[in-house]
Amino acid sequence: MKKLLMVLMGMLLLAGCAKAPAKSEDTYDALVKKGEIVVGLDDTFVPMGFRNEKGEIVGLDVDLAKEIFKRIGLTPKFQAIDWSLKESELNAGNIDVIFNGYTITEERKEKVNFSQPYMDNTQIIITLASSSINTKADLAGKVVSVQKDSSAFDAVTADGDVVKNLKNGELVTFDSNLDLFLDLEAGRSDAIVLDEVLARYVLLSKNAADYKILSDNFGAESYGIGFRKGDTTLLKKVNEALQAMIEDGTFETIKKVYIND
């Protein structure tokens, strides 16, 4: 009986391994055969990817993805994911690319391959206009909030002196960037840190005079599209399409719909 149980456990283990996606596998031919590609995104990240009043997923990155994959010959299917699990979703095969204001970092490069950078961004600090906070140093003893597992979290955490001097010596985290504004407006957070691209878009729908953007920030960065390590062909095709869009003006035309520099 003991031997039989060991054999059965071995068979189950092998079966589980067989279902696990191979990170080194190039899936381009399979995607072409299916004619569809699953794009993972945070559907609250305005203006890159979000839901409009009809509940439809729209945004700058959504329009970019539609044009890129049209040129490649694939139909994008947009799938909202838990942003804190984005790399896990990608490497598990639940999505095929991460495409939604996805900041390129050295830590993330260990988990995924990135496309060429296509947009610059800065992690900015926002307070209410009435706040006495004017510099990073003024954050000492204050409540600072960021999105969970975001590039803002990484950027602030990298500045260890700032974090250790915060109230309770830690950042407060939320699932959505939009929750940051709600917490700031309620007076529970003293400052929030998030992508400038998103923040300035949100402020268009608010009374901007009620808020203050500090001159200090937590660094400049660039957005890229994330791929599984094995998807080198897909990465090459996307980079080619993206570069062509930059050169023929299509990229700038799409960008101007959502962002006026």
Rank of each mutant, 00 (worst) to 15 (best):
A186M: 05
A186I: 06
A186S: 11
A186F: 06
A186C: 11
A186K: 07
A186R: 15
G187I: 13
R188K: 08
R188E: 14
S189L: 13
S189P: 08
A191D: 06
I192G: 02
V193G: 07
V193S: 03
V193M: 04
V193N: 01
L194V: 03
D195Q: 09
D195Y: 12
D195A: 05
E196P: 12
E196S: 09
V197W: 15
L198I: 15
L198A: 13
L198M: 13
L198F: 10
A199V: 14
R200H: 00
R200M: 12
Y201A: 03
V202A: 01
V202M: 07
L204S: 12
S205N: 11
K206I: 11
K206F: 15
K206Y: 13
K206T: 12
N207E: 13
N207P: 13
N207A: 12
A208D: 08
A209W: 10
A209F: 11
D210Y: 11
Y211G: 15
Y211C: 12
K212T: 08
K212M: 11
S215R: 14
D216P: 10
D216I: 11
N217E: 04
N217L: 09
G219N: 07
G219T: 06
A220W: 01
A220S: 12
A220Q: 12
E221C: 14
E221N: 14
S222M: 15
S222D: 03
Y223L: 09
Y223A: 01
G224C: 04
G224A: 04
G224L: 02
I225W: 03
G226K: 02
F227A: 00
F227K: 01
F227E: 00
F227N: 01
R228E: 08
R228N: 07
K229W: 02
K229D: 01
G230N: 03
T232S: 01
T232A: 11
T232I: 14
T233N: 05
T233I: 07
T233L: 06
L234M: 12
L235R: 01
K236H: 02
K237A: 00
K237N: 02
V238F: 07
E240S: 07
E240M: 07
A241F: 02
A241R: 05
L242Y: 04
Q243S: 12
A244N: 03
A244E: 02
M245L: 15
M245F: 07
I246Y: 13
I246M: 13
E247V: 05
E247N: 03
D248R: 06
D248Y: 04
D248V: 12
D248K: 06
G249Q: 01
G249V: 14
